[in-house]
Design a protein around this nucleic acid. Sequence first.
DNA 1: ATAAAAGTTTAGGTTTGTCTAAATTAAATT
DNA 2: AATTTAATTTAGACAAACCTAAACTTTTAT
Lengths: 219, 219
Amino acid sequence: MHSTAEENYIKAIYKLSGNGANAVSTTGLSDMLATKPASVSDMLRKLSAKDLVHYVKYHGVQLTEEGQRVALKIIRKHRLWEVFLVQKLNFTWDEVHEVAEQMEHVKSELLVQRLDEFLGHPRVDPHGDPIPTEAGELPEMEQRALASLEVEQKGVVCRVKDSQPAFLQYLNRVGIQIGTQLQVVDKIPYDNSLEISINKNKSVILSSDVLEKIFVINP
Amino acid sequence: MHSTAEENYIKAIYKLSGNGANAVSTTGLSDMLATKPASVSDMLRKLSAKDLVHYVKYHGVQLTEEGQRVALKIIRKHRLWEVFLVQKLNFTWDEVHEVAEQMEHVKSELLVQRLDEFLGHPRVDPHGDPIPTEAGELPEMEQRALASLEVEQKGVVCRVKDSQPAFLQYLNRVGIQIGTQLQVVDKIPYDNSLEISINKNKSVILSSDVLEKIFVINP
DNA sequence: ATAAAAGTTTAGGTTTGTCTAAATTAAATT
DNA sequence: AATTTAATTTAGACAAACCTAAACTTTTAT
């Protein structure tokens, strides 16, 4: 089995690489994991010896097939637990990440299967992120960043790509959640921010940073 | 916060001491935790420095008040998760211990509160062990070991004091679970085993080892 | 009461995962 | 193309939690 530390590295590599596609840098990982680059080098040697990553010194890492399988299993567990916390224990979407971060490391195949069943095989977690299937598939849905909408265009929020409580609490304050109807009212070319009407109700101005993290369907 | 290793020592001390009453020996702990006595000495020094135990070299340990509070919190979490696994995820009573052993270390006050609520504030876990309350009370019920019943006496199984899968699977085979009605048919003085009728149905002979681990009410 | 046995602790070592500081390699700039 | 800068790796240390072997207490038994 893999240690919690190893699992966290694998998850970080997976996320930084854009779902396993590209190679990832040592500093990128040290930033994401809040460790020093030297520690990352150490761990990459170790993961490489276990054939979980392809590692070429000074040229970054990529997950092996096995590494990707492991990554998807952890992410599956993380997202299933998030669904559990929100749907069954009435957590809010800004409270779940930290707890799921711990639960994802519990080792039991049976537990994951039964949890999935208990939750009714959910397809997405409370942030709209897709849940990898038991077979290791990660079905990506059609969706676009709110930043890409033009004036007048509409969309329904289906995903937010940032699980930090501060960001999610900001969205709560603004009134944005999964399922919220949005429409672009105006574009401010100066900084690429957009004025967005929320549920045909009030309207707010969202910075381009925020716009890149909110995803919508039916554009 | 306390590490998983520290929590496991605290739990072991609590259990070996008979819920905190008596002092516990180094070898007792090393047996229970499957470590060497030398490792136990190290850890006891550490726990003592944190004021979680009273430790007098060569004369055993006891939990401090704080240590007991910590122990009860861990046991509360362990038993709540066991209830969850059995009642919500359809685990059998012999499958839950190992998984709960991992889940008990997840740190989140909110999680424990909400889980307790979700489960309807259960009083006992799937083995009949009482669940410490949020306030740190451990309500012990009236019950006696099956070994103490005389011929003809009846009882209803309310608790089994051994969570090892092998033991629980043995009980499954014999047909004993929580709620099962038993009656002592005969006593074999040679080895203190008893012939027990199960649900007024078949009858089996149980060794005194086993009889000490099964608890009943309505004697 | 003393010697042997049993239990416990200390000393010194290992592994995992981290760190700092120094050395090395790659990338960017002139 | 050479040199500066940035990124990365190696070397050497450290804390946690474990180990073995040796030393020390306590208990037990003669």
